[in-house]
């Protein structure tokens, strides 16, 4: 079965990102396919590589990146939500005249259509938020 997963909150303040990560891992462990993880609202903040959590805490961004690298999970950050909140890839940084980008490895920035597509293509869409 194909799963789409939506993450609507950033890391650390709400449990939503942790729940979504644990759920995504379990989907893969059960032998299902993850069509896409879509990050919306403050969820886009999962995709900055500039977080520095304390050494004895989980690193939420690195956890996501590992899923992308080990399982080819498609991690998509909503461009409209990302622009509001300062999550940029190199292209966007250049296009918007900003002096840096901050997107983490394994994430990509794209449009809201990717969320609708996940709803259409996946057999199940599961949302985590606040």
């Amino acid at each position: 079965m194909k799963f789409g997963i939506v993450v609507n909150e950033g890391p650390y303040t709400h449990q939503a990102a942790d729940s979504a990560y644990q759920f995504t891992k379990a989907v893969l462990e059960k032998g299902h396919e993850v069509f896409r993880v879509f990050f919306y609202h403050d969820g886009v903040n999962n995709g900055t590589r500039l977080t520095v959590p304390p050494g004895d805490e989980r690193d939420i961004q690195k956890n996501w990146t590992a899923l992308a690298e080990e399982h080819k999970v498609d991690l998509v950050i909503c461009i409209a939500a990302a622009q509001r909140r300062g999550i940029l890839d190199a292209n966007e940084a250049k296009r918007q005249g900003k002096d840096a980008d901050n997107i983490a490895p394994g994430f990509r920035i794209s449009g809201l259509g990717q969320l609708i597509e996940a709803g259409i293509e996946a057999d199940r869409l599961v949302t985590f938020g606040d």
Partner: peptide, 19 residues
């Protein structure tokens, strides 16, 4: 909170998909 506005943005984009 921003949820109402960003929900509306999804609806507008989603409208192009003819669902």
């Amino acid at each position: 909170t921003i949820y109402a506005l960003e929900s509306l943005e999804v609806v507008l984009i989603g409208a192009a998909f003819e669902q």
